[in-house]
Design a protein around this nucleic acid. Structure first.
Lengths: 227, 227
DNA sequence: CTCTGGCATGTTGTATACAAAATGCAAGAG
DNA sequence: CTCTTGCATTTTGTATACAACATGCCAGAG
């Protein structure tokens, strides 16, 4: 008897609500700074206030909401400073993931990553940004999986979700894009050579580049007079 | 008019309950694996189930509880594997803290750390383990503060709390203790020299030593027949 | 005209009642 | 004797009612 996969996917309401809200926040439907009215939201989501409040607590723990006593929940508005800090931590975590992965990676893993790299290069060649981001995410998740440290993965994921709320996608200048793809090639080479230190440095540099790109985008979004 | 410091310290019930539970878990009053009965606990804490459940969600987010649908909350029991993983991540984070701190530290900061180091050496000389741990914690917190990255500090604190639930204190063999104190001396030297890379390496080594000590302790706690 | 004080309204915080699910036990069939 | 199946009890999940607090408006005094 192997029913291991099906607890019938039953998901508690608070978790379902949290997931839905997470999506709304990341996609920007709920803009940063928005104050969340419990009664209103609970009606929209079709749940009562009790599970919704539990969802708030979860999202607050993830850093997506802030809760002020007697004044409810509010979608966080990450400042450029916050983004800078988050990227610094992300870099450190990815660096560790790389080091660990280099000690555990199998030839099969590397084959899989090479295939993904090829997909990424194709997306790059076609200037298909959404596909690029999607594959990029898969590769980094894969790296984390190879590292085999669940706590690292969880910490990484949480921070990554927070950064996604910045919605910095859809802005990436060609030079940086080329550079990023090249870095990915180096990553896989370092991994194939089981050179953890090199991989670590590449990943930290990779994150630092992303950080700079995002910070520039954020600066540009604040400055211009347009709408 | 400067009332900036006093919102009269009003703390919501869920937060108060979470803090209390956190303490109970870290101190071991609520042992790992314990299942938490909502009704019972709510009576003991003098709050109703609603804020208690919100507290559960917060602690679950911190990784101190696990929540199973329709089966309530349970104090997490960290395995040796989990502890190893957590220490790996902690090391990476402390390393980053060191690197950042080296670029921002002031002479005044260093003076303060030297004073703490003196206190630590005194505690070490008197074989005062509780004092040693207390000062140790202050020093590491101070380092994080100097690093000036709130996200890093928050991530670090959360992980640290989780590890504290292991209650590995009160076990530390003399040789490792001597070594740890010596490493602290090196830390401050590297910081004074603004040598971020060196400080990083020292901190990662420092954490790795702690990791090994804890893993040994955990192994010994499982093996012996005593009790 | 401006500022202060009080009130009305709306929103969050908490408790409790009710519904649904899980657990343990016991009785009966094999 | 063992295993299954149904029921009673316990526990969690959700909704809702009530209380406490915050916010905005209006009136009246200065």
């Amino acid at each position: 008897m192997d029913g291991s996969q099906l607890p019938i996917a039953r998901q508690a309401l608070p978790e379902a609500a949290a997931e839905r809200l997470r999506t709304l926040i990341i996609e920007g439907t709920l803009a940063p700074g928005t104050r969340l009215n419990e009664r209103e939201l609970s009606e929209q989501l079709g749940v009562s206030r009790t599970p919704l409040r539990e969802a708030f607590r979860m999202l607050a723990g993830d850093g997506l909401l802030t809760q002020l006593p007697n004044r409810g929940a509010q979608v966080v508005a990450l400042s450029a400073e916050d983004a800078r800090h988050a990227f610094d931590v992300m870099g450190s975590l990815e660096g560790l993931a790389g080091e660990l992965a280099a000690t555990r990676v199998t030839d099969v893993d590397i084959e899989g990553l090479r295939a993904l790299q090829a997909e990424m290069e194709a997306a790059h060649a076609h200037r298909d940004l959404p596909a690029y981001y999607r594959i990029n995410r898969v590769i980094h998740d894969r790296l984390n999986a190879i590292a085999g440290n669940p706590i690292l993965t969880h910490t990484y994921r949480t921070l990554n979700t927070r950064l996604h709320a910045l919605r910095f996608r859809s802005n990436l200048n060609p030079a940086k894009w080329d550079q990023a793809v090249a870095e990915h090639r180096c990553m896989i080479a370092a991994l194939a050579a089981r050179d953890g230190a090199a991989l670590r440095d590449i990943l930290i540099g990779h994150l630092r580049a992303k950080q700079q790109a995002v910070l520039e985008t954020m600066k540009n979004e604040k400055m211009p007079g347009g709408n």
